[in-house]
Design a protein around this nucleic acid. Structure first.
Lengths: 126, 126
DNA sequence: CTGCATCCCAATCGATACTG
DNA sequence: CAGTATCGATTGGGATGCAG
């Protein structure tokens, strides 16, 4: 097998990439895991995820809505009420995401050990 | 269950986040999937992954090395030869990553349909 | 309450040039 | 061949103010 034969077809790269890109950003996973427990209002989400700015929470939710992972329901009371809910698609993608999260949790000590070792080595090498 | 109770413990967020952060960037997945087929030299990797700049490939490989996912072996010939190889840890993390990639592949049509629908709707709404 | 618009800083990334 | 260094363009993301 020549190295060139390991090319991933461009369309594969792009599709996988586009999914990983959206779950890879700073807040998406947090929002999805929070919403996976049940519907929440905007303000509840914001309180549940410490550190997120209004702007980023809005942007994250818009992206999730566009990708079909969550639905946005507006109740036109005054003041307005907006609820966010996971879709079936969203709940499905949580399965492999949670698997990855579980791996990360179980193996975090191995990764951080590798990092410490690497950092110590490069500090000595300097 | 109150929304606040859905807080992920901060240490969980940070650890999961730190793993997802490193695999979430633009080139990491591509590099890992390419290396998963067997060791490659720097230049082979670069040719195998179209579009990656030398700078980003170097940075990506450094991060993977630091996290213990790949090893870097220098053969001090002239000119120098550097081989990159997946570690056991790297091969392990590929399992959940590939699961996610497989999901993305199998469901890409659903995601892109959702996007088209969303974009059409917002175009009309404008 | 929800969320858009604006300003602004910091990090990211690509291109290019240069070194062991 | 395998990097490092630097510059410029783009992007991410927080703070603030305003509107429905």
């Amino acid at each position: 097998m020549k190295p060139q034969d390991r090319y991933l077809p461009p369309e594969v790269c792009r599709e996988v990439g586009s999914v990983l890109e959206c779950i890879g950003d700073k807040w998406t996973i947090l929002v999805m895991r929070t919403l996976d427990g049940g519907s929440l209002r905007f303000s509840e989400l914001r309180r549940s995820i410490s550190g997120v700015s209004q702007k980023m929470l809005t942007a994250t939710l818009r992206a999730l809505e566009r990708d079909g992972f969550v639905t946005r329901t507006v109740t036109p009371t005054v003041p307005a009420r907006v609820d966010y809910t996971m879709t079936d698609l969203g709940r499905e993608v949580m399965v492999p995401i949670n698997a990855l999260a579980t791996w990360a949790l179980r193996n975090q000590h191995r990764v951080s050990a590798a990092r410490r070792s690497y950092d110590a080595k490069s500090a000595r090498g300097k």
